[in-house]
Design a binder for these strands. Structure first.
Lengths: 251, 251
DNA sequence: GGACACCAAACTGCATGCAATTGGAGCGCG
DNA sequence: CGCGCTCCAATTGCATGCAGTTTGGTGTCC
């Protein structure tokens, strides 16, 4: 047995879905940074639809956790806390281990070729922008999920992967994608060999290292946002005159 | 260390959210069976809002997988296939194992009391309707997820648990909830003891047995919907005159 | 009696309009 | 110069209206 009966899960071609896809992509490519404002009017105007539709799209993206929606306030691209980012990665690890567990030894030659082709594309894109590298790497994982032919699994893996993308733009330093690509290759080969436990371990370590490379511990321990972030500056303030705050990535 | 800093995740009090909650509950209590029609007008009228709002709510529920939305067609309560149900349970197992892994040995006395109180409630409700038993059992799992203080985990566990609920109304026979209750108690005690691997195993077996009790293999192997379901009836039709079909739960 | 064309009711897809809320500029005061 | 107040433009929350699509029922013809 190679794979399950197919099933169509593709998003329909509503105007709403179109906008969702566009925004999703803009977000994961970091064209829209976390915290960026998303007024319904502007969105509607930009996409040539009414506010009603833009609003609906924002609702969907909020349900996916990519957008934050507060009553009577402008929607913004989600700004996950460091802890939320870590949680997302933890969940992602378990979900993707499930993916490769289901896939180990069950892939057709064509599917393996497809995966290799994708990694080749990642390789070729190494010269390109960071954003593209991140997108391609994420799409590799989503491609894997698709091969399980489990719509639910695809949905959750996609969602959580996008959320992780989002956190990369927040907490990541410019990073080298090379090892990630090698790890992708290793996963493919273990999948082809059908070594279930091996591939599950590979996936865990792969995602763990991505997470660790990305989520450089921000505030030592899981304190609450503002207070802890401001603590060191507060020290300076009380100890001496106010010093010019160092420019910090903001939004 | 006992638990993380709190964080508010509660759904806001939009009219949309109100309708979502109401429908969600109606669905998991099986007041709305899978396949039930949900016209925007009727919903709006029933809840005293415009179609716009009802529509938006349906969109949200569709994003959660509780409702199926097809272009230009009346929305219906989702009718997951048997395979999708199985997939949902597989995902649920991994997610909830993650929950108890994070929780093992980290619960306060108060939290353990809360859990025990909930199971007591489940016990007391044994005389009540099946729907209520199912709801309470589901809420036990969601309560656990809440204690991780990870909003993302709460969201995914809730969603997937609701989806599993949905499948229970489709494929389950009237079942005894007693063992489930005992298993809940066992999980609590293992959590309190802090035995991580034990509680993860308990959770796996608990959910597995729920799934197995519920998902009585429907069509021997994972065939496609209609054809296999109709096969036996087709036999009768071709072999003799058309016989009156036995009344089968429909909608 | 059965297949087919057609039509009206029901319903969805979407835009627009109006009321309510927000946040920020401007202004006055200490 | 900082603090608080007022007021207005920007923006959201929601209902309604119109156009297009689907559904199901009726009549007609074979």
């Amino acid at each position: 047995m190679t794979a399950r009966a197919s099933s169509k899960t593709s998003e329909s071609s509503d105007k709403v879905s179109v906008i969702c896809r566009a925004l999703r992509r803009a977000i994961i490519e970091q064209a829209l940074e976390p915290g960026a404002k998303l007024p319904e009017d502007s969105l509607g105007e930009r996409f040539g639809v009414s506010r009603t539709i833009a609003r609906h799209a924002l609702g969907q993206l909020a349900a996916e956790g990519l957008v934050e929606l507060r009553r009577n306030r402008i929607a913004v691209v989600a700004t996950p806390s460091w802890q939320e980012a870590r949680d997302a990665f933890d969940i992602r690890i378990e979900l993707e281990r499930l993916v490769v567990r289901q896939l180990a030894g069950k892939l057709t030659k064509a599917q393996i070729a497809e995966l290799n082709a994708h990694v080749d594309a990642e390789d070729r894109a190494r010269g390109g922008t960071d954003a593209m590298s991140i997108r391609l790497a994420t799409e590799f994982h989503i491609l894997l999920a698709h091969m399980t032919n489990s719509p639910i699994l695809v949905r959750y893996v996609s969602e959580v992967a996008y959320r992780c993308c989002l956190t990369l733009s927040l907490y990541s330093r410019p990073h080298s994608t090379e090892c990630a690509i090698n790890e992708h290759r290793a996963i493919i080969s273990a999948l082809a060999k059908g070594d279930e436990t091996k591939v599950m371990d590979l996936m865990r370590h792969h995602l763990d290292s991505v997470a660790n490379r990305a989520l450089v511990a921000p505030t030592p321990q899981r304190g609450r946002d503002l207070l802890d972030i401001l603590a060191p500056y507060a020290d300076e303030v009380t100890s001496d005159r106010v010093v010019k705050l160092p420019k910090v990535a903001r939004r």
